[in-house]
Structures are given as C-alpha cells and as structure tokens.
Write a protein that binds this DNA or RNA. Structure first.
Length: 813
RNA sequence: GCGGAUGUGGUGAAAUUGGUAUACACGCCAGACUUAGGAUCUGGUGCUUUACGGCGUGGAGGUUCGAGUCCUCUCAUCCGCACCA
C-alpha cells in the first residue's frame, strides 16, 4: 500500500480525539510545560502564517508530552473587534453569527492539521462568560484607582469610528486600517500603565536571553524612562497681570539640569493652558492666534513635517537661579503630552533649541566648554555661577540637589509611555461595566449583575456607536442609589481580552463558571514556557499582557510577575518576496495544500524551509520535495523486521551500516538542542533526511529497524500522522512514548579522515586509525603532503584531533 | 538622525561555536526505466582555467598556524523609534 495522507490523517485525528490525548492532567503534580501560540482572530479562514505559528507550537507541545511533562497547549479565539462589524455593514451578517461561524470553520481547519490542542479549554473572548470576569477585573482596577475616566485629546480613526491607544497608532496612522489618525477631545477610560512603568522596565532584565533582544529593546524604548529635574518658572509681575492673575508659574521638565544657566527662553506647547488662555482672551494678534489654533489641530506627525515654528507669547519668566527675565514662546515641536507641555530652552546645548533660536534670533548662551555649538557632549561648565569649572555630568546631581534644598524643584522620572486608553466607541467588544448617574456620577456595575452583555438587536450601519443608538439598552438604574441612569456605551479595546487569556486557559474549565482565574492553577501553569507569535505584537499585546499580569497579581488573582517566560517571534510567510495577502493575490490556501499533499507535508515544509525566526519564502516545488521525503519514509517500512528497538553488535557491522547508525544517532543527539533551545527544526529534519539516505545505502535489517524506530520518534512532533501510523504498524507506538537512550559507541569509527592542510590551505586528506598517536599522524601527513613540502622547511606542526593536520612551511634557505 | 537585525551557490539554507565552506532540499544537466512523463531511480552540479592551479561567505584591513565565525572601518538591505527636552 502506498502513502495515502488523507486516510492516515483522518484516522489518527479521530483516534486522538477519542483518546482525549491532548488534555493536561487535572492534578498539578507532574512537572509542567505551558506551550502557547498566539490565538487567532476568527477572520474566516486560516492563512499560512497561522499554519507556521501552530506548527511550531505543536512540535514543542508534542515533544514535551513525549518527555513526560504535563503539557498545556490550548487554543481559543480573539473574537471581538472591528472586522466583525465591518462584515455586518458589508454583508448584513450579525457580528455574533459571523464570528461563531468563522470559529466553527477554522476549528475544523486546525484539527485537519492535526494540532494537539486541548479541546476542553477552548473559548472565544466574546463568550459572555469571558466578558463577565473581564468586567470584574475592570471594576476592581477602578476601585484600586488603576482605571479612570477623563476627557482629553485622543487619537481618532474616522474609518473605524473609534479612539485608538498610543500603541495602536503607527506613523500617524491606524494600525488596523492605515487611515490617518485625527486628534479629538473626548472622554474615555484609561488604565494607569504608567504606574507600572518602572516594573515593566526593570523586569525586562528577567527576560534577557529568553526573549528576542529586538523585542526587549523596542519595549525599553517605548517605555522611554528618563530622569531629570522638574521645576517651575515663575512669571514676572507684568506677565501675571497680563494673564489676569490666573497663572503664577508653569512647570518644566529637563534631563539636562547641568545646562540650567544656559536658558535663554522657554517654550510652551500650543495646547498648554497658558497658550490657550492667551488665545481665548485675544491677547495676541489675530493672525498669530489663528496660526497657533491651526497648529493645535495638527497631529504630531504633521507638525514634524512642517519644520519648526513658534511665536513669542509676550510674557516673561524669572530664572529660578539667576533671577534673569527670559521670554516665553509657544512652539510646534513642544509636545503637550510629555513633561507638562513646557520646556526650558538651552540653544547652546540642544539641537532643537539651537535651530529654533537661530531661526527666530533668540539669544544663545554657552555654559559648557567644548566644540562647536550646539554642543551636546560632555565638558566643563562655564558661566554657571558656583558650578563653573565642574564637570557637567557631576553637576547634574549637584544642581538637582540645590533645587531641592531651596525648594525650587526636585529630581524626577518621566516616561514616554502614555496611559492605555481602553475605550472604543464600537459595538463588538466587551461593554465597559459602568453607569452614569446624575446623582452619584460614575458608578461601577454591581459584581452580581455581571456580565453586562451586549444586546443582540442592534442596527450596525457604520454610522456612530450602535450601543449609543440602541433605543433601550443604555437605560438602567444606578447600582448605588437606584435612580434612573445611563449605561456606558463604550466597549473595551480588544487588547484587553488578549491581556489575560493565558491565565484563563490555566484555569480548569470546570471552574470557569465560578472563577475568572484560579490562583493555584495559574501559579502552577504560568509563566508560559514558550510563547510563539508574530513580532508585530512586540509592544502592543506583549506590553499590555505583561502589565495586566502584574495588575492581576496585585489584585491577588495569581502570583506571577511575567506571563511569558520565553518568546519566539516567527518570521512572516512570503511568496514572490512579498507578504502573502489577498490584495497581492499571492496567497496559498492551507485547505488546498492539505487536500493535495496532506497535513504532514504542510507541517514538514513550513518547518523545513527556514528556521522559525526567519522569513519563509514559499516554494511549491520544495513542498513537493517535502512530500517526496514522507513518501520515501513510508515506503521504507518494509525494511523493518524487528517489532521493538533491536540491540545491535556494533563490531559486526559493515562500514555503511556503521555510517547509517552514526547518522541516526547524530539526528537523535541534535534533537534535544533543537526542541529545547534553537528551534532549528530545519536542521533536525535535514539530519533525519541524511539518516534515511544513509540507511538506504546499507542492508542490515537491525540497523534499518533501529533507524526507523528513532527517525519516527524524532519526526512525530513535526509530522505526527504518518509517524504515528508507521509506529503503530511497526512498533505498536512504543517508540513514541519516551526518550531514547543515546548509544555513544556508534560514533566510534574504524578510521578517521584527517584533512592535510599546508599553511592553512587544504591539500589532501588521509585515513588514520582513531588510536593513532600524534607522531604517527604526522608521519602519514608528511607522506601524503610530500608534493607540497618539496623545497620547504616545516616550521610548525599542528594536529587537531579528529579534524586535520596543519603544516606551516616556508621555502628552505 | 537614533536603535536593532541580516548579508554564504541559480534558489531556500547548513557549518559541532576558531579547524576540510556550501550539509539537507529546491532548481538545473546527463543517464536508466518507460507508449508517454511535469512519475520513479542513478549520477553530476560554487566560480574560473585546456590543464597544473587560482579564486571564493557584501567590501577593505587586522589578529591567528588556521577566520563565514573574533576585532576595526565600510557598503547594502530590512525592521523599529522618530523633535519625549
């Protein structure tokens, strides 16, 4: 019978289901491994990126099961989000119906690939039961003051009709639809991630060598910690008067307190309250006012493109140390969202301030000696009162100390990280469980009323927020005073759901009704031993999930600090050099691939074509090559004559058989490193191919039996159906049960080939006995290399055991 | 501009971490079997040279008996951040 993947694969998928082979133990005794590939959005069909993601995870899960670990390898659905609503608008399908039918289809696709997921722990994040616990967390966070509501300038995507968090804006555009983001003032809910910024930064150290350094760097930069001095500029009396007595001073932040004596002006963001006051009270000429208003309406990206622009606000402040009066400007490059929206300007030692000062003829005062201005390097202070002649680096601390002693300011830390805006003005999300009461204000829903579920009867038109437009849903009574109240119609960002799903999986499904997260089980299973996913989540999901885990820890839901112990970021799947996408028409449909070659070929190919971290270039004929290999493997089953692992007398074997054994055990040796460290499945598969090629060159039946016993064992995590089928038939699957003992003797060879190099260049090679002494080897080497040694003096002889001989020569005098 | 990564045959990629560069696979060439093959099997395949040989891991130097691997400089490509004071 020849290799028939469709038959074999269906058969074993049914058996595995029947055996409930992939459910973890309910007890928490055995040593565990938690293997997790990022869960998919149920878009309708799997794509090759999914196949790759889950093939990697499945290989690891199957490997660790074989090593007798208690393995949790779950799957679920990141099921809320815009595309479901877009489908509703486009095709008139209800988001819920669209989502759950997509899930049904994709679940079947996943099982046709033979992935060994736990079936009992599957859920969709749009299940009301999931929402229930998420809402509970949100309320507890509100009670801990980690969640708050405020009105501020937000990123608005007109295309998606919703607000976006900072992390979800990429180069000024929406991460999902690429539409340009606008600024808008509106109320929203925020999670205080800045409160955890220090810990999120510090704990990156724990992930060193376990996460790709690139991701660690990106997170570090995103958090953007900087230390410096915070102080206030007091306005002059005339300026206070001009501002109607509404402002006394404004605060600035600097990382360069050492340059404080070089301040020649300061600059406010166009959105700064003082700038706003001057505009609103017509205290500047109308042209200038108009221009500042225009700038306020621009995004940061637009402002950056325009070049530097600013206006003298006609007010002055007093330098806190020198008492000097310096002008206050507004400038388009001062960010409202950072450091209070105001800066001191030291044009001599800051490139931006220098450019601005040059442009507007503002004074420039040098306070650090050194090269050409703007000078941003180290040096001795000058013109700096008592600090003159001090090293600028050490002066930083002294100046902060002086400010603190005089009560003028203090050393402080600032982060680039902004608080996480989680409000979305959309229907298909988890409702934010709050109520607006005229009397009580913002009131969280009672825990016993959770979940606050979505109404099914909504009109989704693409215009406005469907919950807002629903006739009755938002009417409710205040959980506190019972009066008529209005339910919050914003829903949570979908990244909230993916921030704790790894903890939900860890909780036994029998407890899902009564507990969001079971602490004991969460502590047993987490952190995830290996997390696998795309690098596009380097700061989005991976930062949010780290944050959420820490918050849930502090709310006593678990004791873990970090959710993902190790991270593997897989490369993209390309075809013709471009990312597979429908719009480019270069997709390969997994279903078709399975129909043509089977799941095992698909899995083998995606793991063979490139190491997982790298991009994978699709190649149809290489897929066929993968299929050919499996077919060949299948055909060789007739070579097996032993029903268990034979014991072999190495000394009785011919050299080809010895070589074959060596190849087989080399592959076995390699597998540990591959599965636990390098994930270079491509090299393991290559080693198995080499082993099979070497077996083909010999006839010994015991060597054949042993070879296939081991190769099937090694490939089971990668191509589980064919290997299980053959293992069942040949060995009753005994070879799939546990690790195989290494036989070091097979690596001892009858003779060793040594390369003979002269001056480092390979000239010839010799066969020597493995026991040959250095002297014996040198004699043989010189004989073999005689041709190149004529007329030469040997000045150095190097013998590298088992490798080569190098003779260093020079022409005889 | 700043930060990170990657450069090896016609292609995807290996290289026991300083020791015979190009394993494995795709493609290509030749042959066998075949009515036929886009099936299967066997052999060959870095470049260059008639040959001996020479050259060869983006480029230029360096360390070393020996460098794809270490060091310095440089070029190219990709990714991330982008006025964060």
């Amino acid at each position: 019978m020849s290799y028939s993947p469709s038959e074999i694969e269906k058969k074993w998928q049914a058996v595995w289901e029947e055996e409930r082979a992939y459910e973890p133990d309910e007890g928490l005794e055995r040593e565990k491994k938690y293997i997790l590939s990022m869960f998919p959005f149920p878009s309708g069909r799997l794509h090759m990126g999914h196949v790759r993601n889950y093939a990697i995870g499945d290989a690891l899960a199957r490997y660790y099961r074989k090593q007798n670990f208690n393995v949790l390898h779950p799957i679920g659905w990141d099921a809320f989000g815009m595309p479901a609503e877009n489908a509703a608008i486009k095709h008139g399908r209800h988001p819920k119906e669209w989502t759950y039918s997509n899930i049904d289809y994709m679940r079947q696709e996943l099982s046709s690939l033979g992935f060994s997921f736990s079936k009992t722990r599957e859920f969709a994040t749009c299940d009301p039961l999931y929402t229930k616990w998420e809402q509970e967390f949100i309320i507890k966070m509100f009670q801990q003051k980690l969640l708050y509501r405020e009105s501020t300038t937000v990123n608005w995507c007109q295309e998606c009709h919703t607000v976006l968090a900072n992390e979800q804006v990429e180069e000024g555009c929406c991460w999902r639809c690429d539409n340009e983001v606008q600024l808008k003032e509106m109320p929203g809910y925020y999670l205080d991630i800045i409160k955890y910024a220090d810990e999120l930064l510090a704990d990156l150290d724990q992930l060193e060598d376990k996460w790709p350094s690139q991701v660690l760097t990106m997170q570090k930069n995103w958090i953007g910690k900087s230390q410096g001095l915070e102080f206030s500029f007091e306005l002059t009396d005339a300026s206070k008067k001009k501002l109607g007595g509404n402002f006394e001073r404004f605060q600035v932040f600097t990382t360069r307190p050492d340059t404080i004596y070089g301040v020649t002006y300061s600059a406010l963001a166009p959105e700064h309250p003082i700038t706003k006051y001057l505009i609103e009270n017509n205290l500047m000429d109308s042209q200038t006012t108009q221009r500042i208003v225009d700038i306020s309406n621009m995004t940061e990206i637009e402002r950056a493109k325009e070049g530097k622009e600013g206006y003298d606000l006609g007010i002055e402040v007093i330098h806190p140390l020198t008492g000097e009066h310096t002008p206050v400007w507004t400038a388009n490059f001062v960010l409202a969202s950072y450091g209070g929206g105001a800066v001191m300007a030291v044009p001599a030692h800051d490139e931006r301030d220098f450019e601005f000062a040059s442009q507007y003829n503002l004074p420039i005062k040098r306070v650090i000696s050194g090269g050409e201005l703007p000078y941003t390097d180290e040096g001795l202070l000058q013109n700096s009162d008592i600090f003159t002649n001090e090293q600028n680096r050490s002066a930083k601390a002294s100046i902060i100390k002086l400010f603190e002693e005089k009560n003028l300011g203090q050393g402080t830390t600032n982060f680039k990280l902004r608080n996480w805006g989680v409000s979305r003005q959309r229907y298909w999300g988890a409702p934010i469980p709050f109520v607006h009461c005229k009397k009580c204000g913002l009131v969280p829903e009672k825990i016993e009323n959770l979940p606050i579920a979505l109404p099914d009867d909504v009109a989704i038109t693409g215009e406005g927020n469907p919950l807002e437009n629903h006739p009755t849903w938002k009417n409710c009574s205040c959980p506190q005073c019972g009066a008529d109240a209005i339910r919050e119609t914003d829903t949570l960002d979908t990244f909230v759901q993916s921030s704790w799903y790894q903890l939900r999986y860890a909780t036994n499904p029998q407890k899902w009704n009564t507990e969001g997260i079971n602490k004991e089980e969460a502590d047993y299973w987490l952190g995830v031993d290996q997390y696998i996913g795309g690098i596009e989540h380097a700061i989005l999901h991976l930062l949010y999930a780290r944050f959420f885990t820490k918050v849930l820890r502090d709310l006593d839901y678990c004791s873990v600090d970090e959710p993902f112990e190790r991270l593997l970021t897989q490369g993209m799947v390309l075809k013709n050099g471009a990312k597979m996408s429908k719009s480019k028409g270069n997709t390969v449909d997994p279903d078709q691939l399975i129909a043509e070659y089977g799941a095992d070929t698909a899995r083998l190919f995606v793991l063979f074509a490139a190491p997982p971290q790298k991009e994978l270039e699709w190649n149809d004929s290489a897929v066929e090559g993968a299929f050919r290999f499996l077919k060949k493997l299948y055909d060789r089953k007739d070579k097996v004559s032993h029903s268990s692992l034979p014991s072999i007398d190495q000394s009785s074997l011919g050299s080809k058989s010895k070589e074959a054994r060596a190849k087989v055990y080399e592959a076995l040796k390699k597998s540990t490193d591959v599965y636990t460290k390098t994930f270079a499945f491509n090299t393991l598969i290559a080693a198995c191919m080499e082993a099979l090629n070497a077996l083909d060159k010999q006839e010994d039946k015991a060597v054949w039996s042993e070879g296939l016993y081991i190769i099937l064992h090694l490939l089971e995590p990668i191509a589980p159906h064919i290997t299980t089928e053959l293992s069942q038939e040949l060995f009753q699957r005994a070879n799939l049960k546990e690790s195989i003992v290494m036989q070091e003797e097979v690596f001892v060879q009858d003779s060793i080939t040594l390369a003979i190099t002269i001056n480092g260049k390979k000239r010839t090679q010799v066969e020597v006995s493995p026991t040959a002494s250095k002297e014996e080897i040198l004699v043989v080497a010189k004989e073999a290399g005689a041709k190149w040694l004529e007329g030469m003096d040997i000045i150095k002889e190097i013998v590298v055991p088992n490798k080569l001989v190098n003779l260093v020569v020079k022409p005889s005098a």
